[in-house]
Write a protein that binds this DNA or RNA. Structure first.
Length: 491
RNA sequence: GGCGGCAUGGCCAAGUGGUAAGGCAGAGGAUUGCAAAUCCUUUACCCCCAGUUCGAAUCUGGGUGCCGCCUCCA
């Protein structure tokens, strides 16, 4: 079985065949760095991270390029608000982006070009388009002429003639008046007084949004790439325009597969800055939601479908992750004890059942990255491991023996392998006995626990329960373990 | 108005012709002084109507509801 992906360009789910066998070139539309990333970005980049990891796991050599849009009106506005510079705003948000992605265990792209560092390629591309008659300048701006490009609208399914009719009733401002067609878009914008600008044959100014991607794709990966990624909200006009620019200039197909992820919704509506219904990645993670919980939450739904963000669904993911994490932790422990490769990459040494599970996982992923079905395979592997973990905790002698069984070890190995493909990595549980700035100190807690042990020993359960309630109120949870031991942790 | 997508149990979500994966929550049981955790068992005929078929959640047609894009947006 081979990987099948839903291609926006053909509106079909088709078999993935890279241009060059064994190699895949990917371009992922990155962020405009005027602010922190929100959950919409998280969803998108987690999905594409999984695509990338799966391709690598499948044996492909993947080159993954993701850009930073660091020239933009919104960045300028933000800089003006802060009485700072475009560079400063960009720099700060790029750092925040990298930190957020790292927390979510999203692999950094192989190369991350920036618009400000790609001006030469951008100017060259505009020049080519002009030479080919696909662009025209007007009052210091340069526009792409959509009517000159046969095939404009092929990605988003738009018909220019029809759209022109629909646009007739639209308000025409000064810029609209300069355009030959309402869909024409700026390749180069002439600088307004006081704005940062860059020199060009058309005068000082800055590149339009769409052209930077066309230029960076070409500079980094060539005329035709295998896969182009982005959110569904980029299909039109951004990706449509990218295709028009690139293909008008090179005469070659820009990307063979266009993949788009569905939006994150809040209360049935798209999460967006303008609606003000967004949650930033760092706000969510800082509120105590673990990165892997967010990752599991995202991967439980198919990447192309809308994903409704609710506290309840997130809670469910958190509980689900807790169980999965426990199994991963045990699998790691068993693996370490047996001296196994902690990052297995093949099916060697697996029982027929486990080989079948591995195949079910691959089949699910091959089916347009059906992570939901793939996770079901993971949870099947989780069950026996969790069961064993529990028996070990109870000091079950038979369990200790089972823990050293090769079958269980290979089961754990497989679980770690497959979880790794989804970018799910074990997280350390909250450490018992950690000293904290607020709440009672460790010694006090120990004393209370001992007092409770004494009460329990004399079957004075009223006192014992009282002590537990008391500590609970201070944010300390007590858990009685077999053998009379009591553990505690801050909640 | 144009283009695209979605509608599956209390919640989330797979399944795209042969009698409904998985997670969460719930219920019953086991264990526990209690609690937590854990383990076992258990809960759906798939928005509506019509049609195709031996057989449809799955295909066709018609409804209804919801969402995205058409302006910056992952």
């Amino acid at each position: 079985m081979t990987l099948r992906l839903t291609n926006t360009l053909t509106r079909r789910t088709e078999e993935f065949r890279p241009l060059e066998p064994g190699k895949v070139s990917i371009y992922c539309c990155g962020v405009t760095v005027y602010d922190l990333c929100h959950l919409g970005h998280a969803r998108s980049y987690i999905a594409w991270d999984v695509l990338r990891r799966y391709l690598i796991w499948s044996g492909y050599a993947v080159t993954f390029v993701q850009n930073y849009t660091d020239i933009d009106d919104k960045i300028l506005r933000r800089a003006a608000e802060e009485n700072s510079s475009m560079e400063a705003v960009s720099e700060r948000n790029i750092e925040a982006f990298m930190a957020d992605m790292a927390r979510l265990n999203i692999l950094p792209a192989d190369r991350m070009p920036r618009a400000t560092q790609s001006l030469e390629a951008i100017r060259a591309l505009i020049g080519e388009l002009e030479a080919r008659g696909a662009a025209y300048s007007a009052d210091g701006d340069v526009y792409f002429a959509v009517l000159k490009h046969a095939g404009y609208g092929k990605l988003s399914g738009r018909d220019l003639a029809e759209q022109q009719q629909n646009a007739d009733g639209r308000v025409t401002d000064a810029e609209e008046a300069r355009k030959q067609h309402p869909f024409d878009f700026a390749l180069w914008k002439g600088a307004k007084p006081g704005e940062p600008s860059f020199p060009s044959p058309w005068g000082a100014g800055r590149p339009g949004w769409h052209i930077e991607c066309s230029a960076m794709v070409r500079a980094e990966l060539g005329d035709t790439i295998d896969i182009h990624l982005g959110g569904a909200d980029l299909i039109f006009p951004h990706h449509e325009n990218e295709i028009a620019q690139s293909e008008a200039a090179t005469g070659r197909e820009l990307a063979r597969y266009w993949l788009h992820n569905g939006m994150v919704n809040v209360g049935g509506q798209k999460m967006s800055k303008s609606l003000g219904n967004f949650t930033t990645i760092r706000a969510l993670l800082d509120s105590g939601v673990s990165p892997m919980t967010l990752r599991l939450f995202v991967l439980q739904a198919h990447y192309r479908k809308p994903l409704d963000f609710t506290a309840e669904a997130l809670e469910a993911a958190a509980t689900g992750w807790k169980g999965l994490n426990a199994a991963l932790g045990l699998a790691e422990a068993i693996g370490a004890a047996s001296g196994d490769d902690p990052h297995p990459r093949d099916a060697a040494g697996l029982s027929p059942e486990l080989v079948a599970a591995r195949q079910r996982f691959a089949a699910a992923m091959d089916d347009d990255l059906n992570t939901s079905a793939a996770l079901a395979v993971l949870f099947e592997l989780v069950k026996p491991l969790r069961s064993l973990a529990n028996r070990l905790e109870r000091g079950d002698a038979a369990a200790a023996e089972a823990a050293s069984s090769p079958l269980l070890a290979s089961q754990g190995r497989l679980l770690l392998e497959l979880a790794g493909v989804l970018g799910l990595q074990p997280e350390a549980a909250p450490v018992a006995g950690t000293t904290h700035s607020n709440g009672p100190c460790d010694q006090t807690i120990q004393d209370r626990i001992e007092a409770r042990q004494t009460a329990k020993a004399s079957r004075d359960f009223a006192t014992a329960d009282h002590i537990r309630a008391e500590l609970q109120a201070q944010g300390i949870e007590l858990i009685d373990k077999p053998g009379g031991l009591t553990e505690w942790r801050r909640v």
